[in-house]
C-alpha cells in the first residue's frame, strides 16, 4: 500500500483522519493544558506564600 493510498483510506480519509486527529488533540491537549495549569498554580502559590511571609 502506498502512502497516498494510506491517506486516502478508501475514500473515508477525511472522516478517519479527523477522528484520529480529534482523539490526539483531546488526549495530548489535555496533558499540555493540565501541565501548564499545574505550573501556573505552582507559581501563584509561591507568590502567595512570598506575599504572606513578607506581610508577617
Amino acid at each position: 500500500m502506498s502512502f497516498s493510498e494510506f491517506l486516502y483510506m478508501g475514500g473515508y480519509g477525511f472522516y478517519v483522519w479527523s477522528s484520529w486527529g480529534l482523539f490526539f488533540l483531546v488526549v495530548f491537549g489535555n496533558l499540555i493544558y493540565t501541565q501548564s495549569f499545574y505550573r501556573r498554580t505552582l507559581r501563584e502559590t509561591r507568590n502567595f506564600l512570598k506575599r504572606s511571609r513578607n506581610k508577617s
Binding site: 483510506m9 475514500g11 473515508y12 478517519v16
Partner: peptide
C-alpha cells in the same frame, strides 16, 4: 471499508 477505523477511537 476503511471507515471502521474510527471505531478504534
Amino acid at each position: 471499508g476503511e471507515s471502521y477505523r474510527i471505531i478504534f477511537v
